[in-house]
Design a protein around this nucleic acid. Structure first.
Length: 343
DNA sequence: CGGCTTTGACCCGCGC
DNA sequence: GCGCGGGTCAAAGCCG
C-alpha cells in the first residue's frame, strides 16, 4: 500500500524548482521509476485481489494530490504577494528601506531606548498590508539567549527581554472567529488582555504553559485593517520539544507569514487545516545580510533564484511533505497510465 | 480539585 | 512630577 516506500521520494527541488511546473521530465522520471519498482515489488499473483484496494488507494492519493496542488498554488501566490509588498516597501523607502534590517539595527544600537520603543510601536502598527514591512521595520535583537533565569528574579528593563528572539506570525482566521487563539502546536496560558490605544481589538498575552522553565511569551492581536488576520508576536525561544511532535494539533489557520527579526529567520508558512504539515520558507539566510542589501538586488534573477531555492529546500526538508507529494504524484501517474493502457 | 480564563488593579517606562 | 499606556499580577470564576 505504501507506494511512497517503493519509490525514491527525493524530488530534487533544490536547484530548478520550476521542474514542478515543467512536469514533462519529472513525470517521465517518476513514472518510470514507480512503475519499474512497482513491477519488481508486486509479483503477478494476487493481482486481482489487490485491484480493489489499489483503486481505493488511487482515489485517496488523487485527492491528496489535489490538496497538495492547492497548497502549492497558495504558497506561490503568497510568495508573489510577499515579494510585491517587499518591492513596494523598498520603493517607498529608498533610504531607510534600502538599508533593510541592517540600517535599523544600527539605529537601534545607536539610539536610546525610547527610540526603540517608538520603532517597536510603529512596527506594531503595521498591518497585514505590509507583512514584509514588519520584517524590515521591527526592532532587531541580538543572538537569542534564554532568559528563563532572569524572569522571576530580576525585573530588568524590557530591553533585556527584547534581547530574546522576537518573531511575528500573521494568521488568517475566519472573520467570525472572535477568539484570539493562534494554534501553533504549543500550549499557552493566557495571563492578560489589554485594549491598546492604536487598535480597538484587544491584545491577549500568553505564556508558554511550560513556564517558568520556558520563557516564551506570545502576544496576539487582530490586525487593524483586516480583522480576519491575527498578528501573533513571539518573544523568546522554547527550550522544550514541540508538543505537536507527540500529538497532532488541529489548526484553523489557512495561511500565515512568519517574519522573524534581525538575525533570526524570516519565513513564510503554510498550514493546512487538520494538523497538516507546516511549510516554512526561510528568507533570511541571505548573503545580502552582510553585503549591501540593495533593494534592486531583490529583483535580480540571483535573488529570485535564491528565494526559490530556499522555498524548495524548505519543502524538501519536510519528509512527510516529500512522502505525501511523491505518493500523490506517483498515484496520479499510475492512474493516468492505467487509463492510457486501457485506451 | 486542579488548571485555565477573565478582568481589574498595579507597576513601570516614557513623554511632556 | 504627572499622566498615559503597555505589560504583568493575582483573585475570582469557570470547567472538565
Amino acid at each position: 500500500m505504501e507506494y511512497t516506500s517503493l519509490i525514491d521520494t527525493s524530488l530534487d527541488l533544490n536547484v530548478k524548482p520550476l521542474r514542478l511546473i515543467d512536469n514533462g521530465s519529472l513525470k517521465q522520471e517518476v513514472r518510470s521509476n514507480f512503475i519499474d519498482q512497482l513491477g519488481r515489488k508486486m509479483p503477478l499473483v494476487k493481482e486481482e485481489e489487490n485491484h480493489g484496494a489499489l483503486m481505493e488507494e488511487l482515489n485517496r492519493v488523487s485527492a491528496e494530490n489535489q490538496k497538495l496542488t492547492q497548497m502549492l498554488t497558495v504558497m506561490c501566490e503568497n510568495y508573489d504577494a510577499l515579494r510585491k509588498h517587499l518591492m513596494d516597501y523598498m520603493d517607498k523607502n529608498p533610504s531607510s528601506g534600502g538599508g533593510g534590517t541592517d540600517d535599523i539595527n544600527n539605529n537601534n544600537n545607536n539610539n536610546n531606548a525610547s527610540k526603540k520603543r517608538k520603532l517597536a510601536e510603529s512596527s506594531s502598527n503595521i498591518n497585514n498590508d505590509t507583512i514584509v514591512d514588519a520584517a524590515v521595520a521591527t526592532t532587531t535583537n541580538g543572538p537569542s539567549e534564554s532568559s528563563s533565569s532572569d524572569e522571576g528574579s530580576c525585573k530588568k528593563p524590557r530591553e533585556e527581554h527584547i534581547k530574546s528572539k522576537i518573531s511575528r506570525v500573521y494568521v488568517r482566521t475566519e472573520a467570525s472567529d472572535t477568539s484570539l487563539i493562534v494554534k501553533d502546536g504549543y500550549q499557552w496560558r493566557k495571563y492578560g488582555q489589554k485594549v491598546t490605544r492604536d487598535n480597538p481589538s484587544p491584545r491577549a498575552y500568553f505564556k508558554c504553559s511550560f513556564a517558568p522553565s520556558c520563557p516564551v511569551k506570545k502576544k496576539v492581536q487582530r490586525s487593524i485593517e483586516d480583522q480576519s488576520i491575527l498578528v501573533a508576536t513571539y518573544e523568546g525561544e522554547h527550550n522544550h520539544p514541540h508538543p505537536s511532535k507527540m500529538e497532532n494539533t488541529s489548526t484553523t489557520s489557512k495561511c500565515c507569514v512568519t517574519t522573524t527579526i534581525g538575525s533570526v529567520p524570516c519565513s513564510t508558512s503554510l498550514s493546512s487545516s487538520g494538523g497538516g504539515p507546516t511549510i516554512t520558507l526561510d528568507l533570511t539566510k541571505q548573503k545580502s545580510h552582510e553585503t549591501n542589501p540593495n533593494p534592486r538586488k531583490l529583483e535580480s534573477p540571483e535573488f529570485q533564484h535564491f528565494l526559490i531555492e530556499q522555498m524548495a529546500s524548505s519543502l524538501t526538508k519536510d519528509p512527510s511533505f516529500k512522502a505525501a507529494l511523491a505518493a500523490a504524484i506517483s498515484g496520479k501517474f499510475l492512474q493516468h497510465n492505467n487509463q492510457t493502457e486501457k485506451w
